[in-house]
Amino acid sequence: MVLIPEVVPTITASLYLPAVYLAMIVGFLGLTGIAIQKKDIHILILTDLVGLAMLIMVAAVGTDLAEALVLPGLVVELAEIMAISEILISREMRKIENAEPIDRVIARKHSVFPFPLKLDMEIMTTAPNFIALVMILYGAFLTGFTGGAVAGGGILFYIFSRKARGLPVIVIDGIGAISGFSWCLWIIGFVLFFIAPQYWLLLLFMAACGLFLKVASKLGLIGAMMREEYKKE
């Protein structure tokens, strides 16, 4: 016996069981893969698959509740993959540094810094201005985490494909500061929402714009990081 509230449409209720079974199958396959694999990088990719199973499970709830739960799930998954990838890289670098001298000669031939890679694609010379403009405008219109992700994607693409390399340190620090201030804006908006509910519209916009700036600036930094790696000449 499952209790279904009246606001849930019948189609959502009828699709609930198939979706949950699907999530279980996908999650089981992903976890089996993780159990079999030995190499860390493969395990990292398979973790992504288990994350998809988690999202299917949440989406099966339907209604706005699911949407409110999917967004934090995505954020956590993104942050987790970024952190683990950094740990993987630094661990492998330390392993090579501590290796036997004979291995070290071989290791030095592959420098620990990435070698220059010529990325010469049409889309990266003609499109960035237009695509970045459209995505930032649309993201600003959406606000909130979704808007931040959309606008951040535009900024990431723009910064990644422009020729000029090497942001001055002050700019990177500045982007970090914007991100911190907007995080405060979000928290203040959220707290005041409970203290002074009569200003809900102002507080809603404070929180939404804070989150928008925060996510967009963070994704912009990822773009700068990627360009430093791939555009060395």
Binding site: L78, I81, L142, T146, A149, L156, I222
Partner: peptide
């Protein structure tokens, strides 16, 4: 809608990181 849009953007970034 929102979840779908955020998911697409997040997948693009995840692929880049991987």
């Amino acid at each position: 809608t929102l979840a779908l849009m955020t998911f697409i953007a997040a997948t693009a970034v995840t692929t880049l990181i991987l």
